[in-house]
Amino acid sequence: MKALILNGSLEHQTHLAAIQEILEDELSKAGWECESLILHRLKVGTCIGCFKCWDTTPGICFQDDQGREINKKAIHSNLLVFLTPLTWGGYSSELKKAIERMLGLLHPDFIKIKDSYRHRKRYDHYPSVLGIAVGREKKDSEEEEIFKTLIKRHSLNWHTPKQKAEVFLDKDDDEKIRESIKKIVVEMGVRK
C-alpha cells in the first residue's frame, strides 16, 4: 500500500515539516510505503485551462515537468495526503497548483451520480484523500468547517473511496498531533 503526501507549504514556511514527519512515521509503522513531496521545491507549471489533457493527449498534461510525475505517483497510490497551511479555509497556492495539474486523471465526460453531475473516472481506482490543514494562531471554527467541506466536496469529484479532513494549529504540541494522526490512520482504514 502506498501513500503520497503532498506538502503544500509556501517557500520559507517550515511549520508543516513536523506534521509531515509524524504522518510518515505513523504510516510507515502501519506498514505503508510512504513518499512525501515538498511541492514548492518541484518544477510544476501552472494549469492554463487548455483541456489538452482531455482532447489532445488524453490523460497527460502537455507540460512535460514534474507535474506529470506527481500525477503518476498519485494515481498509483492508495492514500493521497493534502497537507497545507490553512488558507481562508482552503488550499495553499502550492498545493492547488499541483492539484490542478491532476485534471487529466479524470475523464472529460460528465456523468450523473445521485442527482449530481461529476466527471467520469478515467481509471478504475482512485486514492483515498486525507486533508490536513495547519492554522497559524488560534482555533478558527469557520475556517475549519470550510476546509472540511472542501475536502468532502473535492473528494466526491475524485471518486475517492474514503476521505477525511483535520485541522491542527501550529502551536499544537507534537504528541497531541501524533495521537490525532494515529486515530485518523485507524479511521481511514490505513491501520486495522
Partner: peptide, 16 residues
C-alpha cells in the same frame, strides 16, 4: 472560474 471546488491556483496566489 471554479476549479476543483475552489479558486484556481493563480487566484489563491494573488490572494496570498
Amino acid at each position: 472560474p471554479l476549479y476543483d471546488d475552489c479558486q484556481p491556483y493563480i487566484v489563491i496566489k494573488a490572494m496570498e
